[in-house]
Design a protein around this nucleic acid. Structure first.
Lengths: 330, 330
DNA sequence: ATTCTCAATGAAATCCTTTTCATTACTAAT
DNA sequence: ATTAGTAATGAAAAGGATTTCATTGAGAAT
């Protein structure tokens, strides 16, 4: 039925070992032998069984990716970056959606181990201690992308979100503002924590108070924005930093429906940087996080680990920019 | 180092076969033996090697997914549907982005075969004849999702796009319109073809001509919308059916910037149905394609094939609706 | 001519399961 | 008491590659 390496060996009158050598580009094969074997491979249309190969070599050319939700523009942009680089290096990815559920993350991890992935990219939420230990034991390389976990244990790729927030807040304060809302989103706790810390730090440095009640949490979708707007209005907050850009757009729309103008009556800035920022009116000011690049660099890093290469800088910080567009005042 | 089935067998004083039976829920194990083995499994923290298992059983619990671009809202919604059902049935997915490149699709397919996937979900563009034949030879089950390929060879899940377009056009004609633009997007040729055919059919039935020049092709991104708008204006087309909703929104914005009002001066309807439709002002009228469900049903179908179950209706047509929102007149 | 290297190749072990087939130990039936 | 039938188990093969180690042969060095 299916052609195996044995069939090729027999047909080419060599041993399986030699066929294997040809397959893997091992130089210890006489050119004419190589040619003969290659001809048989082509003629028989032989394609190696990656599963058998994986069992024998202990390498599967597969990496596991843990992600909250692939249908989010934010995460799918990261994944596209990952995938393109993975493709370049001949790896395939297995993606598992976890919706920030720690149990789902744990299951995913165990699945990856069972499937003998060569590496893991983690874009997720919180790894609990047990799971963490399990991973370390396997010695499967792990790279964290955009979760802002400054952890010694794993390599990571991020932007400096605290610095970004610092800049943003300083700009607002310089324009004379003394308060702002911070609307969290559907991201990892750590990431949200770091954003908030950047904001607080900036307020502190300016000897201004950042009130806990300015943090608005528990919303994840565009549809919920009117509720958020209501809260903002109650608290008389007219500077809004939203982690999620769909929600930011929703807030703008809610304000507009309430007869307000953005940015004149309310300024909105998003921390995500998906394609949506261009698609609202006014266009959405935002922190330009290079999502695709974070994914790409993360996977590149992982390939190095998987090949056993030395990595000089395991914690990569990519540059970020603040793009002031229509939803903030000059 | 790593615990194998052999270690468990030795420790539990049974043969590997019995451990395997316990692992796979085979009923031919005495309850007390099962318990003893299970205890050892837990104690040793044994987790089966899926690669070895795959080699021995010829089943990998992995399905390959071919997709143009995971970072598209349209396709990632489909994939989320797929993934959730796959998860339910204990399958993992390997996703490959192809950007509609036939060669990339072919490579992906060969990769899947090599990795011995149990099934394939195809959301892609055009399978050329050779590749098609290769797939058939492997007897790997394939399900087509949302590509609108009414092909006897493979199972498929779709909406009836021609009927959808027919309804839409009929509505426009009933409102007194005699022409409309059809803006293609970044989708498969077949899908676009079926949409166009639905439009043409409707025009014909009303004894109206649909001109070739009303078909606008070659654009894929929001940013390109101003160009499209220019063309629309030249051709004096004020009814626009766009396959892509980001582009539809772009056209609306371009019109607004040109001092026009939507829907008063120009009506726009999108055929995709991503979350974006709610996020524009005016909100975007669209064909409500149940993307998530198409993916989910497709994967469900595939699980049946993979388990060798009979499938009574291999070509599923899911219901669709036309959602008239703010971008079209009542 | 003999020894030494090194390139080229093959035999066989190995990777870790599942699965088939044979065997043993019981229980029920006659 | 004997046989038949069945439940429970084990031994060993199979799955398709890689990899280690041994071997062969040819050319270089002595």
């Amino acid at each position: 039925m299916t052609v195996t390496i044995y069939d090729v060996a027999k047909e080419a009158k060599v041993s399986m070992a030699t066929v294997s050598r040809v397959l893997n580009g091992n130089p210890n094969v006489k050119p004419e032998t190589r040619k003969r074997v290659q001809e048989v491979i082509d003629r028989l249309n032989y394609r190696p069984n990656a599963v058998a190969r994986g069992l024998a070599s202990k390498r599967t050319t597969t990496v596991g990716v843990i992600i909250p939700d692939i249908s989010s523009l934010y995460y799918s942009a990261l994944v596209r970056g990952l995938d393109d680089v993975a493709e370049m290096y001949q790896y395939q990815t297995i993606i598992t959606n976890t919706d920030f559920n720690p149990e789902a993350e744990r299951d995913a991890l165990f699945n990856f181990m069972s499937k003998q992935v060569d590496g893991i990219i983690y874009l997720g939420g919180i790894l609990n201690e047990d799971t963490l230990k399990d991973i370390e034991n396997t010695s499967i390389p792990v790279v964290l992308c955009g979760t802002s976990e400054h952890d010694d244990k794993f390599a990571s790729v991020n932007i400096d979100v605290e610095a970004a927030m610092d800049t943003v807040i300083q700009d607002f304060i310089d324009k004379g503002h003394k308060k702002c809302a911070f609307v969290k989103g559907y991201y990892s706790e750590q990431l949200m924590y770091h954003f908030e810390r950047g904001i607080r730090r900036s307020f502190e440095r300016n000897n201004l108070e950042f009130k806990d009640e300015w943090v608005i949490d528990g919303f994840s979708k565009y549809d919920e924005a009117p509720e958020i707007y209501k809260i903002l209005k109650e608290k008389d907050l007219d500077i809004v930093i939203s982690m999620n850009d769909a929600i930011a757009i929703g807030i703008i729309h809610a304000a507009q429906e309430d007869g307000k103008n953005v940015p004149e009556d309310m300024e909105v800035l998003s921390c995500a940087n998906t394609r949506l920022v261009h698609m609202s009116r006014p266009t959405l000011s935002s922190v330009r996080t290079p999502l695709y690049d974070i994914g790409a660099v993360g996977m590149r890093l992982l390939t190095k680990y998987m090949k056993g290469e030395a990595v000089s800088h395991p914690d990569v910080i990519l540059p970020h920019y603040i793009d002031y567009r229509g939803s903030t005042k000059k």
